[in-house]
């Protein structure tokens, strides 16, 4: 036995079990990271783009209680819930705080006729068909899809807007249904338990004969 013979130290016996362990964990790890990392809960929820005017829903819709439909006035009639034109803001702001630096871009837009560059927050892929009126007139409240907008200083995306999310509700809409007259009352039902909501929703489902479709052609047309 010369001194140049290499002898594996004793701890190297541990290498094999450790490699097996690592080999088992690594794929699991990669799958988890990809699944969680690329889930819309990570990539989409929480999106809060910078708006040209720091318009606060908390102030206007929450504290002052202006109804959503005062500004998003097409929401009951069409697919698209219009972002209000400058004129709508100017119903009040030709007089209120008209020298404020925050209002200035509005005034410029009003004078020049150039539209405000509001950034889209919620954006479905263009191959999806969505309709606001179909939901709002049948008693699905804004809060089910947009969260407590009336408490937001800046609008933030709260739901994934993924296909799984749409289908989850289309399969069992009860807990999201209410009297169609109450859809813009975002705080309604906050004091109720889930069972009560479902019971109430079942009533409205029967009343309005609602059967949300899960056919592909409903949303991909």
């Amino acid at each position: 036995m010369g001194r140049y013979h290499y002898i594996f130290p004793k701890w190297s016996n541990l290498l094999l079990p450790m490699m097996i362990l690592g080999g088992a964990i690594a794929p699991l790890y990669v799958v988890m990271v990809v699944a969680y990392g690329f889930s819309p809960l990570t990539t989409d929820v929480g999106f809060q783009p910078q708006q040209p005017v720091p318009f606060s829903h908390k102030l206007h819709a929450g504290d002052m209680g202006i109804d959503c439909r005062y500004c998003h006035n097409t929401v009951e009639f069409t697919n698209h819930a219009a972002i209000p034109p400058t004129q709508t803001c100017m119903n009040c702001h030709t007089q209120i705080q008209k020298d404020s630096s925050q209002i200035e871009p509005l005034l410029n837009s009003y004078i020049t006729g150039m539209p405000m560059q509001w950034q889209r927050v919620h954006d479905l892929p263009d191959f999806v068909y969505f309709s606001h009126s179909a939901h709002v007139n049948r008693g699905v409240s804004c809060v089910s899809c947009h969260g407590r907008i009336d408490r937001m200083e800046i609008v933030t995306q709260m739901k994934t807007l993924s296909m799984g999310w749409c289908l989850e509700c289309h399969r069992a809409p009860e807990q999201h249904l209410r009297d169609p007259d109450l859809v813009t009352q975002l705080g309604w039902g906050i004091d109720r338990s889930l069972e009560q909501m479902i019971e109430d929703g079942s009533f409205w489902r029967q009343q309005n004969n609602l059967n949300p479709s899960q056919d592909c052609s409903t949303c991909h047309r």
């Binding site: 809960l41 990570t42 990539t43 929820v45 929480g46 999106f47 809060q48 783009p49 910078q50 933030t156």
Partner: peptide, 12 residues
């Protein structure tokens, strides 16, 4: 990323 809000465009 799940806990905070962000202003940068979404990555798809």
């Amino acid at each position: 990323q799940r806990a905070v809000t962000f202003t940068k465009p979404r990555i798809h």
